[in-house]
């Protein structure tokens, strides 16, 4: 064979091998990266499901405790109160006995109201009966009475619209956590809750005029605090997004949105029920 052709063929073989190696590396690397992404997605989905199951079991346990408080302890206390009233009527009208009886009655009344409150807080019955807006409004009103902070509530959109129970509960718990954060840490005077309900969009804003915080700094801590993990976990379950707008001495504004909401318009129109 002529030397020129030997060179050309030999060089071509070498180049072909080099090209093969490059193409193989590109193909194999892409496949491996895709595989890695798939595994990561599966892990994230598994974590999400695990979180969902964990939160569902927490809610079930709360429900059971609330039920026990209401049905057993609440009933027992009511019976005790009735029995005591009967006993009191037998005591006559001695002054000392009258005063003690009054004290015991007040203690029992207070215990009953505490049991009712705990029971209601464990399972938000307003949420189940009247929906997210009403439940948040009720929670805000209660928090208003108990703390020095002024909490205002504003709602736009169709207030009668109902979400999937799981989504409603998750959003309610998130708002609870955010309001508690504002009450405990913000050192502000006002908290404003604004909820924009469908049909236009879903958006929930909780803002305060307190001291704010460095979000990046809190995020970098090994245990972030402020219930951020819990809030993010709950939102992940319903595919919700959270945006923190805060910095030192500039208050805090948290915006919660459900990006997948738009695609659920048909459900809104037909069944007035939305999955988060």
């Amino acid at each position: 064979m002529a030397p020129f052709y030997t060179i050309v063929i030999g060089t071509s073989i070498m180049l072909f091998m080099a090209m093969f190696i490059v193409v193989f590396v590109m193909y194999y690397q892409r496949k491996q990266i895709e595989q890695q992404i798939r595994v990561k997605d599966m892990e994230a989905e598994f974590q999400r499901k695990l979180l969902e199951v964990s939160m569902a079991s927490t809610e079930a346990e709360r429900r059971r405790i609330a039920q026990d408080l209401h049905d057993d302890i609440g009933a027992l206390l009511s019976v005790t109160k009735l029995t005591f009233n009967a006993l009191h009527s037998q005591l006559g009208s001695k002054e000392q006995a009258e005063r003690l009886a009054q004290q015991v009655r007040e203690a029992i009344d207070e215990t009953i109201s505490h049991v009712r409150r705990i029971s209601r807080e464990l399972v938000p019955t307003t949420l189940e009966r009247f929906g997210l807006a009403a439940a948040i409004q009720e929670f805000a009103a209660k928090s208003n009475l108990q703390h020095g902070l002024k909490i205002t509530f504003d709602c736009h959109g169709d207030e009668d619209l109902r979400f999937e129970p799981r989504a409603e509960l998750m959003l309610y718990r998130v708002v609870q956590e955010l309001i508690n954060n504002a009450l405990k840490h913000s050192k502000g005077r006002n908290v404003h809750i604004q909820i924009e309900l469908p049909p236009r969009k879903f958006c929930l804003v909780v803002e305060d005029d307190g001291q704010g915080f460095d979000f990046a700094d809190v995020r970098l801590r090994p245990s972030p605090g402020l219930g951020l993990d819990s809030i993010e976990g709950r939102l992940r379950i319903i595919n919700g997004k959270m945006d923190y707008q805060t910095s030192l001495n500039k208050g805090c504004r948290v915006i919660i949105t459900l990006p997948n909401f738009m695609s659920m318009d048909s459900k809104v129109a037909s069944g007035k029920s939305i999955i988060g």
Partner: peptide, 27 residues
Amino acid sequence: LYYSGTVFSYLYVNYTFNNSDLGIVRS
């Protein structure tokens, strides 16, 4: 691509013809 392509022709030209054939060197 560059080194795998040139190494073969370099070795072939250098060791088979010892740079003596100008036509091959030009190739």
